[in-house]
């Protein structure tokens, strides 16, 4: 990551960090993707009290986050939308029935601005899947709203014991980069 990215994070990424921190989350379990690298860089740089934990696969991240909650922490899971498919068994047979709350921040693929056909079917299905399993979700509509939406999603999750997702669309995470086209924006 370049110096510039660390020092001048995109507003949406700064908002995600501020929102999860304001909600009391000090544990972030993640499987990286390119837009989320801005969030991870910000956390490492400016939120030293937040512990970052890398998982090898998204389902594992949900298991680790569940254990962190049982142990008294307020976990956040960061993942790309493609990883939601990898996570569904842990979400539906652990996180939801045991009422283990966590903030889930989803970097969207397959929505407006996508260039990779392999990302499209899952990306299109994310909202419907979350509705079908009964996980509330909100969307970051503008970079300026990111902190507010992330914080409210998290506080609602922890207060109601129901994990909640915050979707960050590609039109937000890629900004102008999407117009440069192709793999550069991935």
């Amino acid at each position: 990551m370049s110096e510039r990215l660390v020092n001048e994070p995109p507003a949406w990424a700064a908002g995600v960090c501020a929102g999860l921190h304001a909600a009391g989350s000090r544990d972030v379990v993640y499987v990286p993707d390119n837009p989320l690298s801005h969030v991870l860089g910000q956390i490492a740089e400016r939120y030293r009290d937040v512990r970052l934990t890398l998982a090898t696969r998204e389902e594992e991240a949900f298991g680790i986050a569940a254990g962190l909650y049982l142990g008294g922490r307020r976990p956040t899971v960061l993942l790309q939308s493609s990883g939601l498919g990898n996570s569904l068994n842990a979400i539906t047979s652990l996180v939801l029935p045991y009422q283990i709350p966590m903030l889930v921040v989803v970097s969207m693929r397959g929505d407006v601005g996508e260039w990779n056909a392999a990302q499209v079917p899952m990306g299109r299905a994310v909202g419907a899947i979350l509705d079908a399993i009964g996980m509330p979700h909100a969307t970051v509509d503008s970079p300026a709203d990111a902190e507010h939406i992330v914080r409210l999603t998290a506080t609602t999750a922890f207060d109601t014991r129901l994990a909640g997702a915050c979707l960050v669309p590609r039109r937000i995470t890629t900004g102008a980069a999407v117009h440069r086209g192709s793999a550069a924006a991935s």
Partner: peptide, 14 residues
Amino acid sequence: GVASSIGLGVALAK
């Protein structure tokens, strides 16, 4: 499959 991941989370928290 996730039991060891849950245990890891508890171990990190405690």
